[in-house]
Design a protein around this nucleic acid. Structure first.
Lengths: 140, 140
DNA sequence: CTGTATCCGGAAAGATACTG
DNA sequence: CAGTATCTTTCCGGATACAG
């Protein structure tokens, strides 16, 4: 029961989000680095509704720049989450759709959204309380 | 069936990860901004194993700086995911533990980890294929 | 021990112009 | 339409010093 949990069963092990805890590269970090950036999830969410063309994505996502959309879909393509199809028409036409792997991500996204919806009010309250208690704290 | 899905039922709506699609502030983005940063998840993961003191967290997380740990736990505290308790001993002693809300996050984290474990090989392969096909592409 | 306060370098993001 | 190429700005994260 020592606070430094020297006993084998004293402290429950933390979650092991990694395949092998010996391994330094954490599995969770992998997902997060892939999905945790500003735009990837929104692209996946949009593509969950079916194939979309470049401009459709850009219009749907609101606020994303051409550059960021390009980078985002490229990364998703590279990771095998999104399939990019070019039709040799003129002007060029490209569509993006989720692969099997990418589609399996929508479950996670939905779980994320559910959690967020469930707790957003509690979180907003907590923030207000904190901000009132610590007026000039520069936390973002 | 037109590619621009002008029909009402032509294209399945994308996932709605937001409470009200009218609302601009997306729920998912909220979670992601909170949880998608470099360290928050690792802190939550560690705290899932029980309360930890500042130094314990820092030692456990490996690579995190004092500054980043402070910022991370402060944000988590502000959002009501982590409870910070100060014991007026000398030297000061502080412990952090998950709140109810914070604990509920561990489910998501586990889901994230599971997904990652399941697909990491496929993703690694996809990357190698992509990188072989597009040798000098500067994608990260 | 548990932080706060600065400073700084580099990566990410945004804006914009241009091309096939 | 679907990008690429640049340039600029912003901000995250590390290092360090110091304080309660």
């Amino acid at each position: 029961m020592s606070p430094t949990h020297t006993g084998v069963t004293a402290a429950p092990a933390a979650l092991d989000p990694c395949g092998r805890e010996e391994h330094p590269d954490c599995a969770i970090r992998d997902v997060l680095d892939r999905v945790g950036d500003k735009w990837s999830v929104l692209v996946v969410v949009e593509l969950a509704g079916g194939p979309r063309r470049f401009r459709e994505l850009q219009r749907a996502i609101d606020g994303i720049s051409q550059r960021m959309l390009t980078l985002t879909v490229r990364r998703l393509e590279r990771d095998g989450l999104v399939l990019r199809t070019v039709y040799p028409t003129v002007p060029a036409q490209v569509d993006y759709r989720l692969t099997e792997t990418g589609a399996s991500l929508t479950h996670l996204v939905r779980a994320l959204a559910d959690w967020s919806l469930t707790h957003r009010d509690a979180i907003a309250e907590a923030r207000h309380r904190y901000d009132r208690a610590h007026p000039d704290h520069g936390i973002r």
